[in-house]
Simulated scan of single mutants.
Amino acid sequence: MTTRYLSLNGVAERVGISPTTAKTYSDDGRLPAPDAIIGKEPRITRGWLPETIDAWNAARPGRGGRPRKEPRNEE
């Protein structure tokens, strides 16, 4: 059975971000470590299992800014 990995473009499509953002996230360590690396520097290809990206996406904080503040009780 062949294992299928997501490329940066696949990651971007799966979580709804641009491919440029996915590359930035990968380069600065915001994406999890890849599950597979093919080739050698400077032309490597990184791959992530869909379940790796799904778990990362479910655990990451809110999108596009700070997490929402809890409403204050004015009692």
Results as ranks from 00 to 15, higher is better:
E13M: 03
A22K: 09
Y25K: 12
G39T: 14
R43I: 00
L8F: 00
A55T: 13
P67H: 02
L31T: 11
A59E: 14
I44W: 00
A59R: 08
A36R: 15
R66H: 05
Y25N: 14
S26W: 06
A55C: 02
T24W: 12
R4T: 15
P34C: 07
K23E: 06
T45V: 13
E70M: 07
P61H: 10
P71Q: 10
W48F: 09
G64R: 04
R30H: 03
A12K: 11
E70S: 13
K23V: 01
E51P: 01
E75Q: 12
R30Q: 03
D27W: 01
P32S: 01
E41F: 04
E75A: 15
K40E: 15
R14K: 15
L31C: 12
E41H: 06
A22G: 12
R46I: 11
T2L: 13
T45Y: 14
R4F: 08
A33H: 02
I17E: 09
L6R: 10
E70I: 04
P50L: 08
T52C: 13
D35C: 06
D28C: 06
G47M: 10
L8W: 00
L49Q: 08
I44N: 08
M1D: 02
T3M: 09
I44H: 03
R66V: 02
A22H: 11
G62K: 04
P32F: 01
L8V: 00
S7L: 05
P67Y: 00
D35W: 05
E74F: 05
I17W: 08
E74D: 12
R66F: 02
R60C: 06
L6F: 11
P50W: 07
A22N: 11
L49H: 09
G39A: 14
P67V: 02
R72M: 04
N57C: 08
L31Q: 10
R4E: 15
P42D: 09
N73F: 03
A22T: 11
P19L: 09
L49D: 03
P71G: 09
D35T: 11
P42K: 14
G16F: 11
R66P: 03
E75Y: 07
G10R: 07
K69M: 05
T52P: 14
E51R: 12
A58C: 08
T21R: 14
R72N: 02
G65I: 03
R68V: 08
K69S: 07
A22D: 12
E51G: 05
L6V: 13
P19T: 11
S26I: 00
A59M: 05
P67C: 00
P32W: 01
A36C: 09
R46V: 14
V15Y: 07
T3F: 00
R68G: 13
M1P: 00
